[in-house]
Nucleic acid binder design. Structure first.
Lengths: 149, 149
DNA sequence: CTTGAACCTACAACGACTATAGGTTTTATC
DNA sequence: GATAAAACCTATAGTCGTTGTAGGTTCAAG
């Protein structure tokens, strides 16, 4: 490709949808590529690398705001990477908290799903569990930010 | 409360924010309560029960659309609860898939965060991992719907 | 009867996309 | 070189489940 990569090729190479790529450009995490005479985007391998970075970071649970930070930090290779480490650790902590919560949810759902065996709705354990008025059976996992992500 | 529960009381009793309660009413998962002469909402214990049901279901990972289904089904107590069981099982499967993915993410992040120890950005393991051009290190967990939730 | 907390509506914003409408450009084939 | 289809363009709205704001009204205590 002597003229650069089209947005469709970039999409296929990275697994990001075309809309998402344009979205990243609009919000400024992807730099604007050059354009053909007919206004179509043509990317370089640098763009490909950047988009892969963003995609990996997204898959690892980083927010676009954090990715913006990481990209800024990555542009100054002689600085200390303590800040980068901090961002990574913040994510790790968030993911560990999500994991713990999901394990509790799984436990509840396993109990629920296992107990409902073709009876009538009136006897349905799923409905009963969900109908509990108090907050105690989920108290041990009553996290105001449940599923905030 | 002979006159019923105010929205603030309902909020404190369920852990749902006031805006969220009004939101649920707007989208039709919570029934409209009666109003005082001055147009303020006054709830009954039935409302409290319903909101607790919704809150529990949300915490267990059900979407509001699924909750709408569950509430409809729960209104017909003589039906078979097979459908309810199906919804619960669908959720369990989704949560188990999320759990597996998160465990892989944690592993990557642990490796990343553990390897970055106050060096320079140029040597930072976090940046290096995220900069990888190929897709192989996340291939084993390349789920198009990662973090769709 | 006054004060202040709690309430009301309507609407905009969030994050990270996804989808649509309606038009233009590129590329492959004849 | 003409044509057709695939790929591209912009702009805007919608998704989900909230959260936040502005600007006003009502309730309950002292």
């Amino acid at each position: 490709m002597p003229n650069g990569l089209s947005i469709g090729v970039l999409s296929r190479r990275t697994g990001c949808s075309i809309q998402t790529i344009r979205h990243y450009e609009r919000i400024g995490v992807m730099p604007q590529p050059r354009r053909t005479g007919g206004n179509q985007r043509r990317y370089t391998v640098q763009h490909l690398g950047r988009l892969n970075f963003i995609r990996h970071a997204r898959e690892l649970g980083f927010s676009l705001e954090q990715i913006r930070e990481l990209l800024t930090l990555a542009d100054y290779p002689d600085q200390s990477c303590a800040e980068i480490d901090r961002i990574a650790r913040t994510n790790l902590a968030a993911i560990e908290s999500r994991l713990r919560r999901l394990e509790l949810l799984r436990h509840e759902l396993q109990r629920m799903a296992g107990a409902c065996r073709g009876g009538r709705v009136a006897d349905c354990r799923v409905i009963r569990v969900l109908s509990m008025q108090d907050r105690c059976h989920t108290e041990h996992m009553s996290f105001p930010e449940a599923f905030e992500d």
